[in-house]
Amino acid sequence: NKFNKELQWATWEILNLPNLNEEQVKAFIDSLKDDPSQSANLLAEAKKLNDAQA
C-alpha cells in the first residue's frame, strides 16, 4: 500500500543521512513506525536537522 512504500522510502532516506547521530535516527524511525502517515513530514524534519548539523 501507499503508506508502506512511503514508510520504506523515508526509513531508507533517514538511515542514510550522514549528520544524524544514532539516537536521532532511532527517534525518527520510531516516530515513523508510530505514525506512517507522517512519513513525508518526518523525512523533511530529519533532512532539516541533518542540514543544520552539517
Rank of each mutant, 00 (worst) to 15 (best):
S39P: 04
E23L: 11
K26R: 11
P36Q: 04
K26E: 05
L42Y: 14
N19F: 12
Q24A: 03
A10I: 14
P18A: 09
E13T: 11
A46T: 01
N41V: 14
N16K: 12
E45M: 13
A44G: 08
N21E: 07
A10P: 02
D35H: 09
I29G: 01
S39R: 08
L15M: 14
I29P: 00
E13L: 05
N21D: 10
D34P: 02
T11I: 15
A27R: 15
E22H: 14
L32Q: 01
E22N: 13
N50K: 01
T11E: 08
I29K: 03
K5V: 12
W12R: 08
D30G: 15
L15E: 14
F3D: 12
L15G: 06
L15Q: 15
V25F: 04
L7D: 06
Q24I: 04
I14T: 01
A54I: 08
A27I: 11
S31H: 12
Q38H: 09
K2G: 15
Q53G: 04
K47V: 08
V25E: 02
Q53L: 11
L15D: 03
D51F: 09
L17W: 02
A40P: 06
F3H: 08
K2T: 11
K5D: 15
N50D: 06
K47M: 12
Q8M: 10
E23T: 10
K2M: 15
N19A: 09
L49M: 08
E6M: 04
N4G: 05
L42M: 07
A46L: 02
S31V: 08
N16P: 01
E23N: 10
L20S: 00
F3G: 07
A52Y: 12
N50H: 03
A44F: 10
A27E: 12
N4H: 14
A54Y: 10
D35R: 08
F3R: 00
T11P: 02
N41E: 11
A27T: 13
L7I: 14
Q38A: 08
D34R: 11
S39H: 15
N19Q: 05
L42S: 03
L32I: 07
W12S: 15
F3T: 04
A44K: 15
Q24S: 02
A40D: 06
L42N: 02
E6R: 01
W12P: 02
L43F: 05
E6G: 03
N21K: 14
N50S: 14
N4S: 04
L42A: 05
S39N: 06
A40Q: 14
K48E: 10
A52D: 10
D51T: 07
A52W: 09
N4V: 04
K5T: 13
W9S: 07
V25R: 15
S37V: 05
A46M: 02
K33A: 09
A10E: 02
W12M: 14
A40S: 14
W9V: 14
L20M: 02
N21Y: 13
L32P: 00
V25Q: 13
E22W: 08
L17Q: 05
Q38L: 06
A54G: 13
F3I: 12
F3M: 03
P18T: 11
N19S: 09
N16M: 13
K5Q: 15
E45F: 06
P18S: 07
N1L: 04
Q53H: 07
S37T: 08
F3Q: 05
K26W: 08
Q53E: 05
D51L: 12
K33S: 11
E6Q: 05
I14N: 01
W12N: 14
T11G: 03
L49W: 04
S39E: 02
K26Y: 08
A40T: 11
F28Q: 00
L7R: 02
L7S: 04
A52T: 11
N19M: 08
W12Y: 10
F28L: 05
S39D: 03
K33T: 12
A52N: 10
N1I: 05
F3P: 15
L42E: 01
K26I: 11
E22D: 14
A54L: 09
A46Q: 01
E6Y: 09
E6V: 06
S31K: 11
A44E: 07
P36S: 04
I14Q: 01
L7Y: 11
S39G: 07
E22F: 12
L49A: 03
D51P: 01
Q53V: 07
L43A: 05
A44M: 13
V25G: 03
N19L: 03
L15N: 14
T11S: 08
P36A: 05
Q24G: 00
S37N: 09
N1A: 02
E45D: 10
K48Q: 13
D51G: 06
A52Q: 14
A54N: 06
A10H: 07
L49Q: 09
I29H: 04
W9G: 04
N19P: 00
E22G: 08
A52L: 12
E22Y: 09
S39W: 14
S31P: 01
N41Q: 14
I14M: 05
K47W: 07
K47E: 05
Q24V: 04
L15F: 08
E45G: 04
D35L: 06
Q24H: 03
N50R: 00
Q8A: 13
K2H: 15
Q38I: 09
D30A: 14
P18V: 10
K5H: 13
L32F: 04
P36G: 03
D51E: 13
N50M: 01
D35A: 09
F28W: 03
F28V: 02
L15Y: 08
D30H: 09
N1T: 04
K48W: 05
L49E: 03
S31I: 12
K47Y: 15
D34W: 11
A54V: 09
I29D: 00
A52F: 13
W12D: 15
I14D: 01
A52V: 13
Q24E: 04
L42R: 05
L17F: 07
K33G: 07
K33L: 14
E13N: 05
N21G: 08
Q53P: 03
N1S: 02
K48L: 07
K2W: 13
A46G: 02
N4L: 06
L7H: 06
A54W: 08
A40R: 15
T11M: 14
L7Q: 12
K47G: 04
E45Q: 13
P18Y: 06
N1E: 07
L15I: 12
Q8W: 08
L20T: 00
Q38D: 11
E6D: 07
N1F: 00
K33W: 15
E23S: 12
D35F: 08
Q53K: 03
L49D: 02
A10W: 07
K2Y: 05
A46K: 00
K48F: 09
I29T: 05
N19V: 01
L20Q: 00
A44R: 12
L17K: 01
L42D: 01
L17G: 00
Q53N: 08
N4I: 06
K5A: 15
N21Q: 09
K2R: 06
F28E: 00
E22L: 10
I14E: 01
A40M: 15
N50Q: 02
A27W: 14
L20R: 00
L49I: 10
A27K: 11
D34K: 15
E13R: 03
L7E: 08
K47F: 09
K48D: 02
L42H: 04
Q53S: 06
Q38Y: 04
S39L: 13
A40E: 09
N1D: 15
K48H: 10
A27G: 12
K5F: 06
Q38T: 05
E6K: 03
